[in-house]
Every structure is written in structure tokens, then in C-alpha cells.
Amino acid sequence: MARVTFREERCKGCELCIAVCPEKIIVLAEHINAMGFHPATVVEQEKCKGCAMCARMCPDVVIEVEREVAEA
């Protein structure tokens, strides 16, 4: 179980995250944000493994990744 969240208002739609996502679950949204870009967004959130490849490549640090971890 993992969750990826995008700060859409800051996304410039560069697509670097889309190219590296192994699950191919990131797409550019139909709508545009306040800066005039189609922001990246996640479809099929349940497929996210929390690998954070997208976040590692995001030049605008708009992505946060959470992952289920065993209780300590």
C-alpha cells in the first residue's frame, strides 16, 4: 500500500515523472493549473508501489510519497 501526492499547483507538466514510473500510472491532467500547465496526476493510485522514482526525477519537488511500513 502506497500513496503518491502531487502539489498540482506547482507542476510544470514536464513529464519526467511519467517516463520513469514503472507502473505507468502517472498522466497529465486534462485541466490546466494556475501557471497554465497540465499538471501530472495519478490514475489508479492503488497500483502505486511507493518506489518514489517519480519524486526523485521531479525537478520541482512537487511529489510526496507515502508507503505502508511495518509497525516498529
Partner: peptide
Amino acid sequence: MMKKVFTRPKALTDKPFHYCPGC
């Protein structure tokens, strides 16, 4: 338990970068 595994580093301010898309 959900744990943040990737988040914005504290040594960055919250100001959005002015760089071009994909830079």
C-alpha cells in the same frame, strides 16, 4: 502505518523554482 518515504527537504524553502519545465 503509512510513512512518508519521500518529502521536500527542510533545507529547501517553500518558494517554487523559477526554472523552465523539466530543467
